[in-house]
């Protein structure tokens, strides 16, 4: 029971990170119908930007709490700006000129872009993993099993709280943005019918750019949290995280914002429980196999609308 509870906490935390990345996939897919294969690498770039900002500002776990919180806030803003600049440029350079090209062109271009980002960071920052001392330490002990039954402590760390709360807050903000603002209305209209939206005076190019920027900003937050949670990052983390987040987006129903979050959490739970009860080595196999299973049996996802094929 205690072990189960601990894994549940870990799974939800990991799932929140996946969910944040998945939102970027789902929004872009919803609006232009392409898989932004480079999104996982934008997440990685966001993480690197955060690492650099943390060192440059000099955030450590030892300072006053108020200072740490303010500094992390600054770090997250810097990471968001940088990741957004990346994703905006990627859309402008690699995807926009390909609208109306043949079906596989944007995806191939996205794969190329993904390689470019990975290799660029590897060349610029070196291939070795970047470890850092933990910044947010400690936690709350929720449950304790007696020593006589084999001691086990269920702990909810402050970092996990931070991740889940940040994710929740961002979800609320983004849902409001999509459902309540004129920007969100523009996005939803482009999603339904781009040509008609353009006829009604919506700047489609701008709306798509903003979608990429929003996705990147969330991915940057995820990048920072991933780094703080694991204490290490490297140029290749975007690949696995990207595929898993895409799985989460498909699982939840591609195009649906709450679906991405739900899919992320389900995937996080599957991965954590698989590692806890079966084998750590094959946790990625579980996640990747999940993708195939979902696409075959539930292609529209949990919260998605069934796709109508138009001739």
């Amino acid at each position: 029971m205690e072990y189960f509870l601990q894994q549940l906490i870990n799974g939800v935390t990991l799932g929140s990170i996946y969910g944040l990345i998945a939102i970027g996939y789902t929004m872009v897919y919803g609006i232009i119908g392409m898989i932004n294969f480079a999104h996982g690498d934008v997440f990685m770039v966001g993480g690197f930007a955060a690492v650099i900002a943390i060192i440059a500002i000099g955030v450590t776990g030892n300072g006053a709490i108020a200072f740490t919180i303010l500094a992390l806030l600054l770090v997250v803003i810097i990471a968001m700006i940088i990741a957004s600049a990346y994703n905006w440029t990627i859309e402008r350079v690699a995807y926009r000129p390909l609208r109306g090209s043949f079906r596989l062109a944007p995806l191939i271009s996205a794969i190329g872009m993904s390689i470019v980002l990975q290799e660029f960071v590897r060349v610029a920052q070196g291939g070795r993993p970047k470890p850092l001392q933990p910044i947010v330490e400690g936690g709350v002990v929720l449950m304790r099993r007696a020593v006589s039954e084999g001691e086990f402590v269920v702990q909810l760390s402050y970092m996990q709280m931070l991740i889940v709360i940040t994710t929740l807050v961002l979800m609320v903000i983004f849902t409001a943005l999509i459902t309540r603002t004129s920007l969100g209305r523009a996005q939803r209209s482009c999603e339904q019918d781009m040509k008609m939206a353009a006829l009604l005076g919506i700047d489609v190019d701008r709306t798509i750019s903003i979608t990429f920027v929003m996705g990147a900003a969330l991915a940057a937050v995820a990048g920072l949290m991933f780094f703080l949670y694991y204490g290490v990052t490297d140029f290749f983390v975007g690949f696995n995280a990207g595929v898993k987040a895409f799985t989460a987006a498909v699982l939840g129903g591609i195009g649906s914002l709450p679906g991405a979050m739900l899919g992320g959490i389900i995937l996080g739970l599957i991965e954590v429980f698989w590692s806890a009860y079966f084998s750590v080595e094959y946790k990625d196999v579980a996640a990747f196999a999940m993708l195939a299973v979902v696409l075959i049996f539930l292609p529209q996802g949990i919260l998605g609308k069934p796709e109508v094929e138009k001739v």
């Binding site: 350079v93 690699a94 000129p97 390909l98 090209s101 062109a105 944007p106 191939i108 271009s109 794969i111 190329g112 872009m113 993904s114 390689i115 470019v116 990975q118 290799e119 660029f120 060349v123």
Partner: peptide
């Protein structure tokens, strides 16, 4: 830089 060039070539060819 070789894989960087390969990735860049894929983007440019598509464009």
């Amino acid at each position: 830089f070789r894989m960087l060039a390969v990735g860049g070539a894929m983007v440019m060819i598509m464009r």
